[in-house]
Simulated scan of single mutants.
Amino acid sequence: MFTRLLEFGGDMSDSDASLIAAELMYLAREGSATDRANAAADPRVPLEGLWLLARDSDPGVRGAVVLNPEVPAAVLEAIAAANDDLREKAGTHPNAPLELMESVPLIWHTQRSLVRYTERQGTSGHTRDELLSAWSQAHSRSDWTTTLGQTWTVIAGGPHEKP
């Protein structure tokens, strides 16, 4: 029954969504490493499940949390702080905290993460285009060291302002 619910792709009632969330929580707690990784990457996993899976003993499960499109900034920040091997991957997620994003080499980012970064900065389309151009140039030069933060300082005159 659970597997059938997870594969359900149509319109869901609240009870269907609740059952899916319950199954994902069950998998997060009791599943094999593969089951836990699948639950971690599923955008329907509840926040409680993401926190649980972010502390999983299996590095593949923690890595799958970073791949979840709905993972919040706080979870990404916690994963990056506790797992040096996942810091750069977490920093390229569109939901990552700005400071974490800025600490990662520009070349590691995706267009999606950079567009999201500029949206969160509240910048113009021109500034976004400049950043995407710098990203493309970093790829052309194979520049693996210049960070997003360093690039942003040149383009926008400084890193993001802290609240």
Rank of each mutant, 00 (worst) to 15 (best):
R44T: 04
L98S: 08
A28F: 09
V45N: 10
D42E: 03
S57L: 13
A90V: 03
R62F: 02
P59C: 05
W108R: 15
L98R: 14
M25R: 11
A28S: 15
L19M: 14
I79Q: 02
P94F: 03
D84N: 13
L98A: 13
R36C: 04
T92S: 10
R55N: 14
W51G: 08
D16P: 01
I107N: 01
A73W: 04
V71T: 15
N95G: 06
L24D: 04
A96R: 01
H109C: 10
N68I: 12
S103E: 02
D42R: 07
G60P: 07
N38R: 15
L53Q: 03
V45G: 03
R62M: 00
D14M: 12
A74D: 12
D16Q: 15
A17Y: 06
G63R: 12
E70K: 14
S32K: 09
H93W: 07
V45R: 10
R36N: 08
D58M: 01
S57T: 13
E48C: 02
D14H: 09
E99C: 00
L67K: 13
P59M: 09
A82S: 15
L76M: 02
P46R: 12
E88N: 11
V65F: 08
A37G: 08
S13P: 03
P97Q: 11
S15N: 12
D14Q: 14
A78T: 08
R29C: 10
A82F: 00
V71N: 05
L76N: 06
D14C: 02
M101P: 00
N95Q: 14
V75A: 14
R62Q: 13
A73H: 03
D16I: 09
G63D: 11
G60Q: 10
P69D: 10
E102V: 00
V104N: 05
V61S: 10
S103G: 09
V104P: 05
S103H: 01
D35C: 11
R44V: 03
P72M: 04
E99T: 01
W108M: 13
L19S: 12
G31S: 07
E102H: 00
E99W: 01
H109V: 11
G63I: 10
V66W: 07
E88R: 11
D85V: 01
H109T: 09
E70T: 15
L27D: 07
W51F: 10
P46I: 03
A39Y: 08
R29S: 13
M101T: 05
L67H: 07
D56Y: 00
Y26T: 13
E48N: 02
P105M: 08
L24P: 06
E30H: 14
E77F: 10
A90K: 02
G60I: 01
A73R: 11
D16A: 13
S57E: 14
E30I: 00
P105T: 08
N68Y: 09
A33W: 06
